Amino acid sequence: MTPSPLGRAFQDLRAGWGQRELWGHLGWQDIRQRYRRSLLGPLWITISMAVTAIALGILYAGLFGNPLEEQLPYILVGFIVWGFISGCVNEGSEVFIANEGLIKHLPSPISVHVFRLIWRQMLFFAHNLVVYAVMLIVFPQPLTWRSLAAIPAFALIVLNGAWVALLAGIISTRFRDLTPITQSIVQLMFFLTPIVWIYDDLINSPNPDVADRARLAEFNPFLHFIEIIRAPMLGADQQIRHWLVVLAITVVGWVLAILVMRRYRARVAYWV
């Protein structure tokens, strides 16, 4: 019996997951090729991120009058998480375009390329955690057993990165203008998301106008993704609303991605 289009979409995901050895190897190769002949390899990304975070931490600590030991860890963890999120979105929008040769000549599920992308971003995230470990030595945080919530939080972010890459990748393959638009939106959202500025400081501002404007950040979905993992990594109290929003986005996002796969999955090979 021939599976339905919806069944083929799920079959694609299962088959792609089953080819873990393939996309795992390709993900490693991506990193090795990108930093071939480089002495430090992927650590250049980590060093660059650390230098930028430290510079902004010093700058914004002075601007907002916050202690450096508070501002710098906040920014540093925000940068680490944002690097993973923005990488999934930006590279996800061209995940199939960038793999045109493999798609045309290697018969494999399209989800393989998405899993490869997510795996590569996870490796970059793991490299950046080296800076987080150093930060914990220089600026110790009040970590408790509740800080382990960062693990399921990261798992949720990974799940969302996968559906975003699937959805944006398929649409961008058909409409090529979407890729630069997506990258511009991600760049804009960096400034609208509390990564270098502390959200609670503005919410509790004595100026009611500033506090009201800061509350508009609640409509920014990136805020909730950042906070579900940054709070436990810094030993801060967690807010249930962030988890609820992220869970809702995860469910809705995967439903949309499956529906788009159901209808357009087979056309990706022709669009590239």
Score class of each variant (00 low, 15 high):
F84C: 10
G87S: 09
G87R: 02
C88K: 09
V89S: 00
V89D: 01
N90Q: 14
N90A: 13
N90H: 11
E91A: 07
E91M: 05
S93N: 07
S93H: 02
S93R: 06
F96S: 03
A98Y: 04
N99L: 14
G101A: 12
K104L: 15
H105G: 09
H105A: 12
L106C: 12
L106F: 14
S108V: 13
P109G: 03
I110W: 08
I110D: 00
I110Y: 15
V112G: 08
H113D: 00
H113K: 01
H113A: 01
V114N: 06
F115C: 00
I118G: 01
R120I: 05
Q121P: 03
Q121Y: 03
M122D: 09
M122K: 07
L123T: 10
F124M: 09
F124L: 13
F124A: 07
A126F: 11
A126G: 11
A126R: 03
H127Q: 13
N128R: 08
N128E: 13
A133E: 04
V134F: 15
I137F: 15
I137R: 09
V138H: 05
P140D: 11
P140R: 11
Q141L: 12
P142D: 05
L143N: 00
L143Y: 03
T144N: 12
T144C: 09
T144Y: 11
W145S: 06
W145L: 14
R146V: 11
S147W: 13
I151D: 02
A153H: 02
A153R: 01
F154S: 01
L156D: 01
L156C: 05
I157P: 00
I157E: 00
V158S: 00
V158R: 01
V158G: 00
L159A: 09
N160Q: 14
G161F: 03
G161S: 09
G161Y: 09
A162F: 14
V164W: 04
L166Q: 06
L167D: 01
A168E: 01
G169H: 11
I170K: 06
I171K: 13
I171A: 14
T173P: 04
R174A: 08
R174L: 08
F175A: 03
F175T: 02
F175H: 06
F175G: 01
R176A: 05
R176W: 10
D177P: 11
D177H: 14
L178E: 01
L178W: 03
P180N: 06
I181K: 09
Q183I: 10
Q183L: 04
S184K: 12
S184R: 12
I185R: 15
V186N: 11
Q187K: 08
M189E: 04
F191W: 15
F191G: 03
F191I: 07
F191Q: 06
L192H: 10
L192Y: 08
L192R: 05
L192F: 15
T193A: 06
I195K: 07
I195G: 10
